Computed example of a mutant assay.
Amino acid sequence: MSKELLGALDTLEREKGVKKDIVIEALEAALASAYKRNYNQAQNVEVNFDDKKGDIHVYAVKKVVEEVYDPRLEVTLADATAINRGYEIGDDIKFEVTPKSFGRIAAQTAKQVIMQRVREAERSLIFDQYSQYENEVITGEVEREDHRFVYVNLGNVEAVMGSQDQMANETYRMHDRIKVYVTRVENAAKGPQVFVSRTDPGLLKRLFEEEVPEIYDGTVEIMSIAREAGDRAKVAVRSNNADVDPVGTSVGPRGQRVQAIVSQLGGENMDIVEWTDDDAQFIANALNPAEVIDVIFDENNERAATVIVPDYQLSLAIGKRGQNARLAAKLTGFKIDIKSESEAEQSLESAAQPAVEAADSEADQTDVAAEAAGTDGVESTLNAPSADETETSAAENTDE
Rank of each mutant, 00 (worst) to 15 (best):
L327E: 11
A280F: 04
G322Y: 07
E302V: 15
A290H: 06
D337F: 03
K320T: 12
Y312M: 14
G322K: 08
A290F: 04
G333F: 11
I336Y: 03
T306Q: 10
T306K: 14
V292R: 03
D337I: 05
S340T: 12
F282P: 07
R321V: 08
T332A: 10
Q323F: 02
A329G: 01
D294C: 01
S340D: 07
K320F: 04
V292A: 08
A304Q: 15
F297Y: 12
D298T: 08
E291A: 14
N324Y: 01
A317Q: 11
V307Q: 04
K320L: 07
N324W: 06
N300D: 14
Q323K: 02
Q313F: 08
N288D: 11
S340K: 13
A290K: 06
R303L: 13
Q313K: 12
N301A: 14
F282C: 07
Q281H: 12
A284R: 07
A329M: 03
I283T: 02
T306W: 02
A280N: 09
I338F: 04
A290S: 13
A325R: 09
A290V: 06
A290T: 11
Y312G: 05
P289D: 13
V295A: 03
A284N: 05
R303C: 01
L331V: 08
E299Y: 02
A304K: 13
A325T: 08
V307W: 00
R303K: 15
A328P: 07
E302Q: 15
S315E: 09
Q281R: 14
S315H: 06
G333D: 09
I336M: 04
L331Q: 10
I293S: 09
R321D: 14
I338N: 02
A305Y: 00
I308T: 08
E291H: 14
Q323W: 00
N288C: 08
K330G: 03
I336W: 03
L331Y: 11
V307L: 03
A317S: 09
T332R: 05
Y312I: 14
D298R: 05
I308F: 08
R321K: 15
F297D: 06
K339S: 06
A329N: 01
L287N: 09
L287P: 13
D311P: 11
E302W: 05
L316A: 04
D294A: 15
A286I: 12
I308L: 13
S315P: 01
R321G: 00
I318S: 12
K335W: 09
N300I: 05
G333I: 09
K320Q: 15
T306A: 12
T306C: 08
F297W: 10
N324E: 11
Q281Y: 02
A284D: 00
A328V: 11
I336F: 03
V292F: 02
L314W: 02
A325V: 14
I308Q: 12
N301Q: 05
K335C: 01
V307E: 00
Y312K: 15
I308N: 07
Q313V: 10
A328I: 12
E302M: 13
K320H: 14
L327Y: 03
T332P: 10
V295H: 00
F282Q: 10
V295S: 01
S315G: 05
I283A: 02
N300M: 08
V309Y: 01
K339L: 13
N300S: 12
Q281F: 06
V295K: 06
I283L: 09
D294V: 07
L316E: 08
L331F: 09
E299M: 11
I318T: 09
